[in-house]
Amino acid sequence: MRALAAELAKLASLPAAWVAAATGVLVPSAVAAMTARGGPVPGGEDIGYQELAFGVLGAIVLGVVAISSEYVTESAESGGGRQITTSLTAVPSRTRFLLAKMGAVAIGGALLAVVAAAATMGVVQAGAQTPPLGAGDVPRLAGVVCYWALTALLAFGVTVLTRHGVVPLALFIVNTSVVSVTYLLTKITLLANYLPDMAGVRMFIRRLPDNDVEIAPLTAGLVMAAWVAALLVVATVVFTRRDA
């Protein structure tokens, strides 16, 4: 518990984490504002949700910097000192350290999702032609929160393995693009629909363009959670076995 508090404090004191938060809130709400202004759009039932699928960018940056900041040596006067050394002396159990970090990342990602969803849906509701939010939106919004938290953990897990933020950041941002690489893969094999992000978005997106594969929201969440769990187990095993 104390380790989790320490990790939350570390995350909250990282300027990059706040930049991530700002991005995660501003990108989907600004885009939603532009879309809502344009009048009724096809796929209207997904308005707001689609934007939130891009806004996950903020959660990705959060997950990456949470661990890459431990290894960074870029500061001009750091003299090659890395924070990981201090962290592991403070919390010697590596598993506990990593679990605390995962907790902080998941909480951060989920909080960010709540704020971003509130902002984005607020903007969407302000638009005239949008249907009001109903009871059916509650599980979908919960899906958004799960998706953001799980994506943050996914980015975190990959960065634990690489120890440097650039590669995971590039891969995840590229795959957040409007036509993602995983979406392209679904054109080749239907199995690609079960990749973490393709499955995950089905927790809240109703209609994907040119895609007939139906995955129920709960199944979608379980599929993504299984990917994340598997990755985090691998990350933990690697992290506890290698030199810091």
């Binding site: 990059a16 991005t23 885009v31 910097v65 941002i173 409007v178």
Partner: peptide, 17 residues
């Protein structure tokens, strides 16, 4: 990280939108 996040965020998310 800052430069990569800003540029790729622009080229892959903000730009296309």
């Amino acid at each position: 990280l800052v430069a990569v996040a800003v540029l790729l965020g622009y080229f892959f998310v903000a730009g296309p939108l």
